[in-house]
């Protein structure tokens, strides 16, 4: 018997864009990652974290004896207060830090757990891996933080009572406002998710860049108009259903139309994901990290 090994060139399984294969692979990654994101030990703290605004609104609407009366009697003020809570607590704190945790963990967490090579050993395009992981993070963050937003809104409306709410929600601007808040949350997860995914890929220690992004987003109200537009919070702020005063120090900028804000965020996300795809191709083996 010959000891020679017969070798011949193997025809690549997929010679052209095989979208159905990629979609199947993305679905498979999504299943694995969603399980990790939702049911892992790391997720428990995130649930508690995301519940803070809901608990606060619950305390205001149900437990505080004057809270519900205040909401009923001073509805415009209550809406403005909720707008501030939404932007200051939910968007800038919960969604920001929640997305930072979820999306940075997608790759950096795998590197620390020494499990990224399992994905790299599969016959899987790196871009597909980025897409699968991003969508899993997006799904986890969107579900979690839209629930936070919806829960907080529920207690705000609950304090008003049933008849007033039915009128406001179905015959007034209420439903539009609720959907806008939920939409802003989804867009925030989309934008911040992409930013943190790419930070997690580019930086070994992602804390400093994440803190710089946090500072940039918080100081956005002070920035000149051109710089304001290089941020996510600017677009989210302009979409707010209740116009909010940013304080006496804020630079006044003409509000960006939703027709520009929403596509801008989506295009930005696509660009950042493209960047992440290029980066992931350069990542050799997790042991080299």
């Amino acid at each position: 018997m010959s000891s020679m090994i017969e070798a011949s060139t193997v025809k690549p399984a997929a010679t052209q864009l095989d979208w159905s294969l990629w979609l199947r692979q993305i679905r498979a990654i999504l299943r694995i990652e969603v399980k990790k994101n939702f049911w892992g030990k790391r997720a428990l703290l995130l649930y508690l974290f995301a519940a803070i605004p809901v608990v606060l609104m619950f305390l205001l609407a149900i437990v505080d004896p004057n809270g519900s009366a205040d909401i009923r009697n001073k509805w415009p003020n209550a809406q403005e207060a909720f707008g501030n809570i939404y932007e200051g607590l939910i968007l800038r704190t919960m969604v920001f830090f929640g997305c930072a945790w979820i999306f940075m963990n997608l790759f950096r967490g795998e590197v620390v757990d020494k499990s990224l090579h399992y994905y790299f050993l599969c016959s899987l395009r790196r871009e597909v891996l980025v897409a699968g992981k991003y969508f899993s993070g997006l799904l986890a963050s969107v579900v979690l933080f839209t629930l936070t937003t919806a829960g907080s809104l529920f207690f705000l409306y609950y304090a008003r009572g049933y008849p007033a709410n039915v009128d406001y929600l179905f015959d007034g601007p209420g439903m539009g406002q609720v959907l806008t808040y939920l939409g802003i949350t989804i867009l925030a997860c989309l934008g911040y998710g992409a930013v943190f995914l790419v930070i997690g890929l580019f930086f070994r220690n992602p804390i400093i860049p994440a803190l710089l992004v946090y500072g940039w987003e918080w100081l956005n109200f002070l920035l000149p108009p051109v710089l304001k537009k290089i941020s996510i919070i600017h677009y989210l702020h302009t979409l707010s259903p209740i116009p909010l005063n940013e304080g006496p120090l804020a630079t006044v900028v003409e509000a960006t139309s939703p027709w520009i804000s929403v596509p801008s965020l989506i295009v930005f996300t696509a660009l950042v994901l493209f960047l992440a795809s290029i980066r992931i191709r350069g990542v050799s083996h997790p042991s080299n990290h």
Binding site: L59, D64, N84
Partner: peptide
């Protein structure tokens, strides 16, 4: 932010 929101609400 949590402290300031609690201050504003309650």
């Amino acid at each position: 932010p949590i402290g300031f929101i609690i201050e504003e609400l309650f």
